[in-house]
Design a protein around this nucleic acid. Sequence first.
DNA 1: TCGAGATTATCAACAACATTAAGTATATCA
DNA 2: TGATATACTTAATGTTGTTGATAATCTCGA
Lengths: 167, 167
Amino acid sequence: MTSVTREQLTTGERGPLEEIEQALMQISWLAQRQFMQLLDDERFRLTLPQFYTLLHLYQSAAECKMSDLAEATQQSAASLTGVVDRLAEKQLAERKRHPSDRRQVMVVVTPRGCELIAEIKQARREQMQAALSHLVDQDVDLLLQLLDRVLLGMARVLERGESGRWA
Amino acid sequence: MTSVTREQLTTGERGPLEEIEQALMQISWLAQRQFMQLLDDERFRLTLPQFYTLLHLYQSAAECKMSDLAEATQQSAASLTGVVDRLAEKQLAERKRHPSDRRQVMVVVTPRGCELIAEIKQARREQMQAALSHLVDQDVDLLLQLLDRVLLGMARVLERGESGRWA
DNA sequence: TCGAGATTATCAACAACATTAAGTATATCA
DNA sequence: TGATATACTTAATGTTGTTGATAATCTCGA
C-alpha cells in the first residue's frame, strides 16, 4: 500500500501514480483515435462501438444475449440495439431468438464478420508494432505482465461500479 | 530459441507483441468508457472531446490556435468548432482574435475552466488509484517508464501518419 | 494597387451514438 | 387470471464525426 502525503490530497500532486494515470489516459485517447481512423478505411468501414461489439461476439464462442453484450462492451442497451442493427445490415452479425425465453435476443457473428475481424486485427497489429518497435523483448514481457494487472484492477473497479457508483 | 508453429504464421498468432496490443486496446476502451461515465456526473457534464480539448488548453501555457488544438487533440477542424462552441457556452473557454492575422482564432481556458479541470483530475485520480491499488511502488515506477516509451512510439507513429497513412 | 491563389475557420447536411423515458412482448408467480 | 418483473426496442434530443462548400483574410506577383 502506498502512502499518501498531504500534498497529494490538497494540491496538484506529482506522484508516480498520477503520472501513470496521465500516461494511461493519454495513451487511451490516442490509441482510440488512431484506431478510429484505421476502422474508417474503405476496407472496414466500422465504428469503434461496432468493432468492440463484433470483437466480443468473435471471442465468445457461442451466441450472446443482448444484455450480456451490453455489459461486456460497456454500452447502454438502447445504444447496443442500434449498433447491432447496423452490424446486421452489413451481414456481420445476426439476431436469433432464445428458444425457451422469447424475450431474449441472441446475437452471433457471421463468417463474414469473422473474416473482417481477422483482417482488422492484422492491420492493427502492424500499426501497433510500429509504435512498439523500439521496445526490446525483455521490456515487452515486463510490460505485458504489468498491463495485465492494470486490466485486472480496472475490471474489478468496473464490477464494483455496477451497483454503487465509484468516485 | 522458441519455435514458431504454422498456426502462428497463418492464423491468429499469439506472440507477446500481439498480447500487448490486445491488452492496450482493451485497457484503452475500458478506460475511456469509465472516464466517460465519470465526466457525465452532474458536477462536470463534459464529454470526452470537450475534456481533452479543455485539458490541452489548460496544459499549454498560452492561448492556442484552432488548427493546432485540432492536431493536438486529434480531432477534425469541423468537429473542433462545435466542441469549442459548447465550451464557450459553458464559459470554460473563450475565443479571441489573433492580433496580426485575423484569420486565426485563438482559444484560452477561463479560470472557471481551470477549476473544473482540477476537480476532474482529482476525481479521476481517485478512480484510477482504486484500479492501481494492488501495484506496489516498484511496479509503479517500472510501469511508468514503459508507458512513457509506448506513448513516445505512438506519438511518432501519429506524426508519420500526418502525411502518409499507415497500414 | 489589384487580383489570383493560399490559408484558416466555419457552416450545412447527414450518419452514428449516448442518454432518458416510454412502450411492447414475454415470463413468473401469487 | 392478473399483477409485477424482465428483456428489448422505440422515440426524442444532444454531441460528435465526415465531407464538401463557403467566407474571411493574408500573400505575393503583375
